[in-house]
Measured scan of single mutants.
Amino acid sequence: AKPPKTVTVKVEVTNADGETQTRTVTLTNLPKDLKPGDTVTLPETGQTARIVEITP
């Protein structure tokens, strides 16, 4: 079996106070056609994050 493909992405997350924070997260099994501006759900927090940058 192939190991899951991990991708490092820079995302913007809005916290409970309405502040936008930029975080770098490593995600696995992202859709192939994901692009900056799309939103993903962070598995560890369940927060919705907007992708700023994808590092191949």
Rank of each mutant, 00 (worst) to 15 (best):
D33M: 06
P3F: 08
K32A: 15
T55A: 13
N15G: 12
V25H: 03
T28D: 09
T20R: 10
A49I: 06
K35D: 01
P43A: 07
E53V: 04
E44S: 09
E19F: 10
R50N: 04
T14E: 08
T20D: 02
L27W: 10
Q21P: 01
T26V: 12
L30H: 11
T45I: 05
T8V: 11
R23P: 01
A1L: 12
I51S: 00
E44R: 06
A1F: 12
Q21E: 15
T41S: 06
T39C: 10
V13K: 01
T26M: 10
A16P: 10
V11C: 03
D33C: 07
V11Y: 10
G37F: 02
T14C: 07
G46N: 08
A1V: 13
L42G: 01
E19I: 13
K10E: 03
T48Y: 07
V25C: 07
Q21Y: 15
T26D: 05
G46D: 04
P43T: 06
K35S: 04
P3Y: 08
Q21S: 12
G46F: 04
L27F: 13
T26F: 11
G46C: 05
L30W: 15
K35E: 04
V7W: 15
I54G: 01
R50A: 04
T6N: 10
D17W: 11
L42A: 01
T45K: 02
I54E: 02
D33W: 13
E12K: 05
Q21M: 12
T41L: 12
P43Q: 06
D17M: 11
V25N: 00
E53I: 03
D33L: 07
L42E: 02
D17L: 11
K32N: 13
R23S: 09
T20I: 13
V40G: 00
Q21W: 13
N29M: 08
V7Q: 10
A16G: 09
P31T: 14
Q47A: 05
T39P: 03
K10S: 04
P4F: 10
P4C: 12
V9M: 09
V52R: 02
D33E: 11
A1Y: 13
P3E: 09
A1T: 13
V13H: 03
E44C: 07
G18W: 01
R23L: 15
K5E: 10
R23T: 10
K32S: 14
K35W: 04
T28Q: 10
Q47Y: 06
L34C: 04
E44M: 08
A49G: 12
Q21H: 14
T41R: 10
T41I: 15
L30G: 09
T55N: 13
T24W: 15
T45S: 10
P3R: 04
P56M: 14
T28W: 10
E53S: 12
L34M: 08
V11I: 11
A16H: 09
Q21C: 09
K32W: 15
L42R: 00
K32I: 14
T22F: 15
V52A: 02
K2G: 12
T14R: 09
N29L: 07
P4L: 13
L30C: 05
E53P: 00
N29I: 05
L30S: 09
A1R: 07
T41V: 14
I54V: 08
T14F: 09
A1D: 12
P43S: 06
V9D: 00
E19Y: 11
L42I: 11
P36W: 04
P4I: 13
L30I: 13
Q47L: 09
T8P: 01
D17E: 11
R23V: 15
K35F: 05
G37R: 01
R23E: 07
T24C: 07
T45N: 08
A49L: 05
G18H: 02
T6D: 06
T39H: 10
L27V: 05
Q47D: 10
R50F: 11
D17N: 12
A16E: 13
D17T: 07
T26P: 02
V9S: 00
G37M: 01
P36G: 02
L30T: 10
K10Y: 05
R23W: 15
T22H: 10
E12Q: 10
T55C: 13
E44H: 10
T14Q: 10
P36I: 15
P56T: 13
T28N: 09
T6R: 13
K35R: 10
K10G: 00
V52Y: 03
P31R: 12
E12R: 06
N15A: 08
T14P: 03
L42M: 06
T39A: 05
D38M: 09
P43M: 06
T28I: 11
D33H: 12
E19M: 10
K2F: 12
P36F: 04
P31Y: 14
N29W: 10
D33Q: 08
V9E: 00
E53N: 05
E12S: 08
P3W: 08
D33F: 09
V40D: 00
